[in-house]
């Protein structure tokens, strides 16, 4: 069990605060319990950190990992690369976006937002995200022409038959599965409650304000979820072929 914990830091106010907070949190915990402390826990202890300073909490946690490894005689590798902050709304840096783009063969702004959340807020960082996409892919791809990931269906002709209820619900569930990891990373989740017609969807949106906290627990806004559901559809046939989904309830911790 940890009796006492001290820190040293060559860092800013947030780094000092994060280190100090961490030493307070882990006193009285076992080593394994201490390793469960996440950087979000540190930020919460401080009543939140600005996006530019979130990496200070990450550094604190890494220092703890290194200390425990050192105590146990293990080696600890720091593979956490950090770089320029691109998305201020959600505190996402350039190397994170680039590695996600490469790993998932992303091509558009929208895909980047779906996978990392970057660019899904105020949109001021879109030029920087596009620069990263161009650097990785050699060019910028238009949103419509995305072969995209394994999950999306290929574009189909306009004479597509209408989906049965069962097929529609399956499609919706598949799409929700694709975005669920992003929500869960922020301690949230999504449940399909029901499905209604397209026209009712717009009215529903207005009755569901503030699903996104926008601050410490940024999540996807209803409009984004709707867009992603709308696009993962049956291609060029237009709105009639898109799955009509409403009542996406975003669960909060």
């Amino acid at each position: 069990m940890i009796d006492d914990a001290r820190f040293q830091t060559f860092g800013c106010g947030s780094a000092i605060a994060s280190s100090s907070a961490l030493t307070e949190i882990i006193k009285g915990k076992t080593l394994d319990e201490a390793l469960q402390v996440s950087n979000q826990d540190i930020a919460d202890y401080l009543d939140g950190l600005p996006p530019e300073k979130m990496h200070c909490s990450v550094m604190g946690r890494e220092a703890l990992q290194a200390a425990v490894a050192n105590y146990r005689g293990e080696t600890w590798n720091d593979d956490h690369e950090e770089g320029d902050l691109v998305c201020k709304c959600f505190a996402i840096d350039a190397p994170m976006i680039e590695s996600t783009v490469r790993a998932n063969r992303l091509r558009t702004l929208e895909e980047v937002a779906n996978y990392t959340k970057a660019g899904g807020g105020c949109s001021a960082c879109h030029e920087k995200i596009e620069d990263i996409l161009i650097a990785v892919n050699g060019r910028l791809y238009a949103s419509q022409a995305t072969p995209g990931t394994a999950r999306s269906t290929p574009a189909e002709g306009s004479g597509k038959p209408k989906l049965t209820n069962y097929q529609r619900i399956r499609k919706i569930e598949e799409t929700l599965e694709a975005i669920r990891p992003t929500l869960q990373r922020d301690h949230g989740d999504v449940t399909l409650v029901g499905s209604r017609r397209q026209e009712d969807l717009r009215r529903t949106h207005r009755r569901l304000p503030g699903l996104c906290d926008g601050g410490r627990h940024p999540g996807r806004r209803p409009a984004e979820t709707h867009r992603s559901l709308g696009r993962t559809g049956t291609g060029a046939a237009g709105s009639r072929a898109r799955p009509r989904v409403t009542f996406i309830r975003q669960e909060r911790p």
């Binding site: 860092g11 106010g13 780094a15 300073k53």
Partner: peptide
């Protein structure tokens, strides 16, 4: 001119 006061690290 430290990193923490600028936008980058």
């Amino acid at each position: 001119g430290s990193a923490c006061t600028s936008g980058s690290l």
